[in-house]
Deep mutational scan, measured.
Amino acid sequence: LADDRTLLMAGVSHDLRTPLTRIRLATEMMSEQDGYLAESINKDIEECNAIIEQFIDYLR
């Protein structure tokens, strides 16, 4: 059971955070005209990261 939990934490961490990191990188490359959009996307990314952290904390 502990091994399954560790594997799940690693999978969640990698499989969800990697795309979020790519999205954040894309927002950094957006033009200044789209700053409001990038800010909104980054806020959503932070919310997703917080949910992931809560899930990982729960698994521990």
Rank of each mutant, 00 (worst) to 15 (best):
S31T: 06
R24A: 08
E28S: 10
Y36Q: 10
L25Q: 01
D3N: 05
R5T: 14
E47H: 14
L25M: 12
E53H: 02
N42D: 10
R22Q: 09
L37R: 14
I23C: 01
S31I: 06
E47S: 15
N42Y: 02
Y58T: 00
L37C: 03
L7G: 05
E39F: 15
D34I: 08
Q54P: 13
D3G: 05
S31P: 12
E46I: 07
L37I: 14
E39Q: 06
L20V: 14
Q33I: 05
E47F: 11
A38K: 13
I45F: 15
L16W: 14
L1G: 13
I41W: 15
A38Q: 00
I45D: 14
D4F: 07
M30D: 15
L16P: 05
R22P: 12
Q54R: 11
D44Y: 13
A2F: 10
M29H: 08
I52S: 08
E47R: 00
A10E: 05
D4W: 09
R24C: 08
K43Q: 14
M30I: 00
D34W: 02
Y58W: 01
A26E: 14
E32F: 06
T6Q: 03
A2G: 11
I56T: 12
Q54C: 04
E46S: 00
D15H: 02
L37Q: 15
E32P: 07
A26G: 06
A38V: 00
H14A: 03
L8C: 05
R17P: 08
D3L: 11
A50D: 05
H14F: 00
I56M: 15
D15W: 00
D34G: 14
L37Y: 06
T27Q: 02
A10M: 02
L59A: 10
M9C: 12
L8E: 05
I52K: 00
D3K: 04
R17A: 08
M30E: 11
Q33F: 06
D34K: 13
L8Y: 03
R22S: 05
A26F: 11
L16K: 14
Y58P: 15
I45S: 10
L59S: 10
L7C: 06
D3H: 04
D15S: 01
Q54G: 10
G35Y: 10
R24G: 07
G11V: 04
L1Q: 11
F55Q: 06
V12W: 14
P19I: 07
C48G: 05
R5F: 09
S40L: 00
D44I: 07
D3R: 05
S13F: 08
R22T: 03
T27W: 02
L20E: 07
S31E: 07
I51W: 14
L7H: 06
A50F: 07
R5W: 08
S40F: 13
P19Q: 11
D4P: 13
S13A: 11
T18Y: 02
M29Q: 09
R24Q: 10
L59C: 00
R24W: 15
R17Q: 12
S13Y: 01
R17L: 04
D57N: 04
M30G: 05
E39R: 09
A26N: 11
Y36K: 11
Q54N: 11
L8H: 06
E32R: 07
